[in-house]
Simulated scan of single mutants.
Amino acid sequence: MHRLLRNPFSSGSSTSPQAALYALCVSFFMICLDATVVNVAVPDIRASLGASLNEAVWVNSAYALCYAVPLILAGRLGDRYGPKRIFLAGLTGFTAASLACALAPSASVLIAARAVQGLAAALIAPQTMSLIVHLFPAERRGRALGVWGAVGGAAMAAGPVIGGLLITWTGWRGIFLVNIPVGIVGWIAAARLLPDWRPAKEHRLDLWGIALSGLGLTALVFGVQSGEAYDWGPSSAPSRSPRSSPSAPCVWRCSCGGSTATPASRSCPCGCSTTGTSPQPPLPAEPWERPWAVSSCP
């Protein structure tokens, strides 16, 4: 018990780098899993919380956006305060946000909790690579990074399968509740096994760059995802019917080569059979704008 409750920021350099890698991979697997595990829960979330399709999609997008935007800032924070400290802070926030997601009474609360999850995941991800580079010498680093990358890829691929099983057994809230014991185990393992190391060189924080990149990404994702819901940018392209315009005059031709100019006179003076066709407009240059059928007179 004394070893379990010791100072989590004490040095873990006496432990095996391989054991530290396993501790890092537990948390990295969890944050990568949450990027895809929610996909299969969208119908259940909509039915349970009465969410619109746009709100259900934002449950995923809020996590991805808040995960991607602050990655550079999170890496700089690790350089300044130590990767282990930022890693444990992110893991604490991620576990707490997972509980908030599981208890969310509405779609808006769930989206907000997922955003906090994404921010916490952004604190975790850069520290895993930084600690691997520190723990492993150059000749062993490639294999360690290969394990780290394989864990992330396997987590994202397994997300829909694991999500489907959890929804079947426990409902959609179970995909968030499972993070709590995993997060606690990962926190204890990281506190015991990771070294409290800090890079010697501190890097300047580019706050303006981070703010502008975050604003730009947010605007882009919001426009692509929610633009239709707000009727942004109505299409100005003219609609094109696969058939000719009804106002186009029909030309009736008989089998002997004669023709009549109006559809009112459909019979040929020589008594031959007649067929009617409507002249087609010139084909547009773009193939996808061309009419799909040649029309005939009614």
Results as ranks from 00 to 15, higher is better:
residue 86 I to Y: 00
residue 194 L to D: 04
residue 39 N to S: 11
residue 235 S to G: 06
residue 205 L to C: 09
residue 280 Q to R: 03
residue 11 S to D: 15
residue 244 S to I: 10
residue 295 S to L: 01
residue 256 C to Q: 09
residue 53 L to K: 03
residue 106 S to W: 00
residue 89 A to I: 14
residue 104 A to S: 15
residue 48 S to F: 05
residue 27 S to A: 11
residue 201 K to C: 13
residue 297 C to T: 05
residue 218 T to P: 06
residue 87 F to C: 05
residue 252 W to S: 11
residue 240 R to L: 12
residue 12 G to R: 10
residue 297 C to R: 01
residue 202 E to Y: 04
residue 288 W to V: 12
residue 212 L to K: 07
residue 16 S to E: 14
residue 197 W to G: 02
residue 41 A to K: 01
residue 242 P to V: 05
residue 274 T to R: 09
residue 259 S to L: 04
residue 221 V to Y: 03
residue 5 L to Q: 09
residue 65 L to I: 05
residue 58 W to D: 05
residue 121 A to E: 12
residue 12 G to I: 02
residue 184 I to D: 12
residue 76 R to L: 14
residue 12 G to F: 07
residue 38 V to R: 02
residue 276 G to H: 03
residue 75 G to D: 13
residue 70 P to G: 06
residue 194 L to K: 09
residue 159 G to W: 06
residue 95 T to G: 09
residue 48 S to A: 14
residue 129 M to R: 06
residue 167 I to R: 09
residue 261 A to Q: 13
residue 76 R to T: 15
residue 176 F to W: 10
residue 247 S to W: 09
residue 121 A to H: 03
residue 1 M to G: 15
residue 61 S to P: 11
residue 209 G to R: 02
residue 150 A to F: 03
residue 156 M to K: 10
residue 134 H to V: 07
residue 104 A to H: 13
residue 28 F to I: 06
residue 115 A to R: 00
residue 296 S to C: 04
residue 127 Q to S: 09
residue 114 R to W: 04
residue 79 D to R: 02
residue 99 L to H: 03
residue 78 G to A: 11
residue 66 C to I: 00
residue 222 F to V: 03
residue 190 A to K: 00
residue 73 L to F: 06
residue 15 T to D: 14
residue 245 S to V: 05
residue 247 S to Y: 09
residue 2 H to Q: 15
residue 97 A to Q: 06
residue 85 R to Q: 14
residue 238 P to T: 10
residue 31 I to F: 03
residue 154 A to G: 11
residue 62 A to C: 08
residue 94 F to Q: 07
residue 145 L to Q: 13
residue 198 R to E: 12
residue 56 A to W: 02
residue 268 C to Q: 03
residue 82 G to M: 14
residue 204 R to Y: 07
residue 246 P to I: 00
residue 90 G to D: 13
residue 191 A to I: 02
residue 68 A to N: 05
residue 86 I to K: 00
residue 218 T to R: 10
residue 283 L to H: 07
residue 11 S to R: 08
residue 271 G to L: 04
residue 63 Y to S: 03
residue 120 A to Y: 02
residue 183 G to E: 12
residue 187 W to R: 02
residue 69 V to R: 00
residue 165 L to P: 13
residue 37 V to E: 12
residue 89 A to T: 14
residue 203 H to W: 01
residue 22 Y to P: 04
residue 269 P to Q: 12
residue 89 A to E: 12
residue 31 I to R: 01
residue 204 R to C: 10
residue 81 Y to V: 11
residue 65 L to Y: 01
residue 16 S to M: 11
residue 259 S to F: 04
residue 266 R to M: 10
residue 13 S to Q: 15
residue 169 W to D: 06
residue 31 I to V: 15
residue 250 C to G: 14
residue 214 G to T: 01
residue 166 L to D: 08
residue 116 V to N: 14
residue 96 A to H: 07
residue 99 L to Q: 01
residue 57 V to M: 13
residue 156 M to V: 05
residue 208 W to K: 10
residue 94 F to L: 09
residue 282 P to N: 01
residue 75 G to A: 10
residue 234 P to F: 10
